[in-house]
Design a protein around this nucleic acid. Structure first.
Lengths: 161, 161
DNA sequence: CAAAATTAATATGCCTGCATATCAAATTTA
DNA sequence: TAAATTTGATATGCAGGCATATTAATTTTG
């Protein structure tokens, strides 16, 4: 194996090295994962972000937007738009809480529940397709490593959300 | 270990399962990686995307926007804005090619080269920090698995770019 | 050579992501 | 209890991400 002289000189950078860095690879993996999601969900017109928000609202009816954002790791400022789009499609409703009038409780409509239910097989397929270049052992390994990275930064200042 | 009954019923979904899926974990990893990048680069006001574009332009002076986008896996429609912002900061220049007047050749300014040069140690640190929850062997493993995922979809229809 | 197809850049529209600010409602505390 | 602080929702502004369309320059092809 030829010696990579650049390794000895960390300040000598070039674009091929940048392309091999975790930041870029993670960005690419995300790009691929989103593309597969859209392909698989094209008939339902639901983004990955909208789906996980909707599924969580179904799971935990009455949750408010701030709790939802925390739970699925969304930015507080982003969640509003996501919910607004789900509401516009009549998949969720927002109801002002009588106990605390700052809070709007989120509930899914029957159409929202139906949509998540029929899209589930597709969601499973998205995940299979993302990992498909790897053997089943490697898939488990990747998942475990990613989980540890994500867990490692939970609640850290570097995890903006 | 208790049996996860949900595994036997793939259509029974809930939000905790979605949160464990590769799509979500990759999205989270990307979120963390971007946050660390901004932290590390806060004094330079350069995004990860701008940096890799700039570094590539330095590496391959005279490249045009379409080639650049392909090389660093950007969407063709996104690259324009990224270059525009680099140009506004006087880090790159666009010059109409005399050989083919459709093409604008990209070159970095001295300021652009200087900026990449001084930010390199930070870029190295970003990558270390992302992988920091893992042992050095696991870091290598993760990188290799991610590379294979990314390579597995290169030029595939599922890789929008 | 002229019409057709391709290509590079750019624009628009929608969605996500995040920092920052505002406002009203609730809670804390002085 | 009144003032200060916190909290939830929302708005604005900017960046990236992508589909789709347009325009001008170039290449292909009939």
């Amino acid at each position: 194996m030829p010696i990579d002289r650049r390794a000895a000189y960390p300040f000598c950078m070039n674009s091929s090295r940048l392309k091999q860095m975790p930041g870029h690879l993670i960005r690419r993996a995300n790009q691929i994962s989103s593309a597969i999601f859209s392909e698989e969900m094209v008939e339902y017109e639901l983004t990955a972000v909208q789906l996980i928000a909707l599924a969580t609202i179904i799971d935990r009816p009455g949750m408010d937007a701030t709790r939802l954002a925390e739970y699925i790791d969304f930015d507080k400022a982003t969640i509003g738009g996501v919910i607004e789009r789900l509401e516009r499609k009549r998949l969720v409703e927002r109801r002002v809480s009588q106990a605390d009038k700052r809070i709007k409780e989120l509930v899914a409509t029957p159409a929202g529940r139906a949509l998540v239910s029929v899209s589930m097989p597709h969601i499973e397929r998205v995940q299979e397709r993302i990992l498909q270049p790897l053997s089943s052992g490697e898939q488990a390994q990747l998942m475990s490593l990613l989980k540890r990275i994500v867990a490692g930064f939970a609640n850290s200042p570097s995890d903006a959300k």
